[in-house]
Design a binder for these strands. Structure first.
Length: 654
RNA sequence: GCCACCAUAGCUCAGCUGGAAGAGCACCUCACUUGUAAUGAGGUGGUCGCGGGUUCGAUUCCUGCUGGUGGCUCCA
């Protein structure tokens, strides 16, 4: 028998008879490795652990706890679920069932949607099948044979996929995986048997369109999670619970920040405390505007429909716009969904020279966009909102410098809030675009160059740009791991064209400026939602609605407390006195629950000595300090704009 | 918009198969004058989201609508 040479990731190589399997090689290396080996990679391609090797190759063993191993595990769990569903509901047709981050799903066509009880039944059946420990066997066959196989089984969706593989990818064969009576079209790899699947849970059902197209049949999607160990499964379930606790909608209610009312669906009402956060954020951005030479403007809420025709919004965006009319007024108006057209008027209100550029115009104007009912939710997707919006009018040569500066501003700002996990994405020319391809290519190059010069990592989102230009988006995750776009930098060659914007170049020629749409926080509403979840409601001192709560122990201490309140208030600190007829323990509890960063306990000792007993949120008693020291400490901390750090180290800095 | 689920006091939630709406917290009153995460007693408070239907009788069953939640689609 021929010998083949297998090279391992550490560079060492081994001789084996041809036909050896990765599992056998793993066993020769060590029993521990063989036990954890769930799949393998041959020359970089994922294969089953039992796939015979016939040629020299690079081999890597995929263990169950690696990312790739868990992916295999989750994929196999989705097959297990499909098998259980087919046993329980013989008429069900299975569509697709991939692994996803931390779990899996399977899309299934059934007459009756699944209920929670069905989920429990399916999960139970899954455990039974797993117990039986069916071998998972791969089989490669011609497309025609497989179409026959799935035709017999009435699996229409599998046939459609097979036809696509044949017609679009030009393959004439494909693989299926068998476990017991169940078979699924699949590239693999899979766990060697169903017995590997032990630590899983089905989570929820949802509707999902076949192939993600809303014109297609809606299928039932069951989501589940699956892990190498019970411990990891339990940790994940706990994580999901914790995420619920820091859901911004829950915090918004508990901390009295905002509310929603059916009279204006998906439009937040910011309460006094929420408005403080909102305005502090705006204030912070205004400070940046001073530093970076922006001019803030205020523009109208409703504008003549003609304008929106001219800007292209009516044609491209009318599904998202609100319209208004008034008896006696022959004109029709639209509520602005974006600020950009209004800024072109300000640009064009005087003759511009190259010396005026870049001209940076900022606007916190309220925007209204109609969002389909199912799309809205909490503060992250609303119909009424404001952005920290600005438009930069500049020459083509100035774009790169502006973009570099913007990326810097945006990332510095996110750093202030300690968003560790920011993804940067460049979206390129979509199918529907306007302008010249050369201009697009150049613009895309500029965006890439700007990121590369600074060494930022980014992904390319092919064809996802706006119809008027490519963009860079900045994306962070919410408590439930959903991605949300915050900041954005968008190049626009169309708007200056449509509104005939010009500037006089040094040559004396009239030239067309470029417009850069940009936002740092994005929508203030969304940003507040994400920030609340990111901080679990423990906002940094400068943003927090009540910074300091004075807690007099008895009525006798009220005068001193109010005296102090005035003193702190006059210094610009948001301070409250809890004068309720309660024990100090109850007042402390209330302040802790409200996540108020600092508490000042006022009793006989403090009145006598002119001190405040300071207590810090979640950390506890800090000790008695002279009033002026407490005041200075708070002022410094507000000025520093630091995030809250809930460690014991904090009291050492007092 | 689509699929599923949810809607009971200001908040969080009970309310079995249809038979006179409940708790805790909050709020108000009174007592207590309190030292680092909930003092006690009493009290106010609900068209059971809204509209139809079934029924002798509907918070409960059916149905339409509204709003919300999880997804899908779409997007800051």
């Amino acid at each position: 028998m021929d010998e083949i040479k297998v090279t391992l990731p550490d560079g060492s190589s081994q001789e084996h008879p041809a036909g050896v399997t990765p599992l056998e090689i793993a066993q020769s290396i060590g029993s521990r490795l063989a036990k954890d080996a769930v799949a393998a990679k041959i020359n970089g391609e994922q294969v089953d652990i039992t796939r015979p090797i016939h040629e020299d190759c690079d081999l890597e063993i995929i263990t169950i706890d690696s990312d790739e191993g868990q992916e295999v595990l989750r994929h196999s769990t989705s097959h297990l679920m499909a098998q259980a569903v087919e046993q329980l509901y013989p008429d069900a047709k299975i569509a697709i069932g991939p692994p996803i981050e931390k779990g899996f799903y399977y899309d299934i066509d059934v007459d009756e949607p699944f209920s929670d009880e069905d989920l429990a039944k399916i999960e139970e059946r899954m455990r039974e099948i797993a117990e039986k420990d069916y071998d998972v066997k791969r089989e490669e066959k011609s497309i025609e044979e497989l179409i026959g196989l799935f035709d017999e089984r009435n699996e229409d969706y599998k046939i459609e996929i097979l036809e696509q593989i044949r017609d679009e990818e030009g393959d004439d064969s494909a693989s299926v995986y068998w476990q017991g009576e169940f078979v699924d079209l699949c590239r693999g790899p899979h766990t060697p048997s169903t017995g590997w699947l032990k630590h899983f849970n089905l989570l929820n059902v949802a509707g999902a369109y076949w192939r993600g197209d809303e014109n297609n049949q809606m299928l039932q999607r069951i989501y589940g999670t699956s892990w190498p160990s019970e411990k990891e499964l339990q940790e994940h379930l706990e994580h999901l619970e914790e995420a619920k606790a820091r859901d911004h909608r829950k915090l918004g209610k508990e901390l009295d920040l905002f509310s929603f009312h059916k009279e204006s669906p998906a439009a937040p009402f910011f309460h006094p405390k929420g408005a403080i956060i909102y305005n502090e954020l705006v204030g912070h951005i205004r400070d940046l505007y001073k530093e970076y030479n922006y001019s803030e403007v205020i523009t109208p809420q409703i504008l003549d429909l003609d304008l929106w025709h001219r800007s292209g919004h009516y044609e491209n965006y009318k599904e998202n716009m609100y319209f208004t009319s008034q008896k006696g007024d022959e004109k029709e108006f639209a509520v602005k969904p974006m600020n950009c057209p209004t800024h072109t008027f300000i640009y064009a209100s005087q003759k511009r020279s190259y010396r005026d550029l870049p001209l940076r115009i900022a606007d916190f104007g309220r925007l209204h966009r109609y969002e389909r009912t199912g799309a809205t939710g909490g503060l992250t997707r609303v119909r009424s909102f404001a952005q920290d919006d600005a438009h930069i009018f500049c020459t083509i040569d100035q774009i790169e410098e502006e973009v570099v500066e913007l990326v810097e501003i945006i990332l510095n700002t996110y750093e202030l809030f300690e968003f560790g996990d920011v993804e940067i994405e460049i979206s390129t020319r979509p199918e529907k675009y306007i302008g010249e391809i050369e201009t697009w290519d150049r613009a895309e190059d500029i965006l890439e160059a700007a990121l590369e010069h600074k060494g930022y990592e980014y992904n390319i989102n092919e064809g996802d740009g706006a119809f008027y230009g490519p963009k860079i988006d900045f994306i962070v995750k919410d408590a439930l791991d959903r991605d949300w776009q915050l900041g954005t930098v968008q190049l626009d060659f169309m708007m200056p064209e449509r509104f005939d914007l010009t500037y006089t170049a040094s040559s004396g020629d009239e030239e067309r400026p470029v417009m850069v749409h940009r936002a740092v926080l994005g929508s203030l509403e969304r940003f507040i939602g994400i920030l609340l979840e990111h901080t679990a409601g423990e906002l940094p001192l400068w943003l927090t609605p009540v910074q300091f709560s004075l807690l007099p122990i008895t009525d006798d201490h009220h005068d001193y407390a109010y005296e102090l309140k005035d003193k702190f208030f006059d210094a610009g600190i948001r301070v409250e006195v809890d004068a309720r007829n309660e024990k100090v323990g109850a007042k402390i509890r209330e302040a802790e629950v409200q996540k108020i960063p600092y508490m000042g306990i006022i009793g006989d000792r403090e009145v006598e000595n002119g001190t405040i007993s300071l207590r810090q949120h979640t950390i506890g008693d800090v000790g008695a300090l002279p009033v002026s020291e407490v005041l200075d400490k708070l002022l410094v901390k507000i000025e520093e704009k630091q995030m809250r750090i809930n460690t014991k180290q904090e009291d050492q800095t007092v």
